[in-house]
């Protein structure tokens, strides 16, 4: 999801909060789809490096296969945006552009 829609959802929440109704985090999640990458049993350990990388690869493979408009692909993007350091994503985007990314998309 992009920052724009997240922002409007958040505004609603803030309005709700101003009226004195304090939302709990779970309510906030319910109403604004504010959720983070879930636990993934493929990566049950402390080391989450491959959760991040695999989601990045999956997103681009999904887009290549289904087209950029295909909504379910956004799930992978959400996951890698939550888990990957921004610097890593920038580096990989660059590598994808100049064809030096280490995985086949």
């Amino acid at each position: 999801m992009n920052a724009e829609s997240g922002g409007t959802q958040l505004l609603l929440l803030l309005l709700l909060a101003r009226k004195g109704e304090v939302p709990t985090m779970s309510e906030a999640i319910m109403s604004s789809q504010m959720e983070t990458a879930p636990f993934d049993p493929r990566f049950p350990n402390q080391n989450q490096t491959k959760y991040c990388y695999q989601s990045y690869v999956d997103f681009h493979r999904c887009q290549k296969l289904k087209g950029e408009e295909y909504e379910p692909c956004q799930y992978f993007k959400k996951v890698f945006r939550s888990v990957c350091p921004n610097a890593w994503v920038e580096k990989w985007d660059e590598q994808l552009e100049n064809g030096s990314f280490p995985s086949k998309i």
Partner: peptide, 25 residues
């Protein structure tokens, strides 16, 4: 990890920490 609601990314640098929140905003 118990179904986390927020993910905080923290990156160590020489010599400071930088933080990233990318779940929603």
């Amino acid at each position: 990890v118990n179904n986390p609601s927020v993910t905080l990314k923290t990156v160590g640098h020489q010599w400071y920490w930088s933080y990233e929140y990318s779940d929603f905003l």
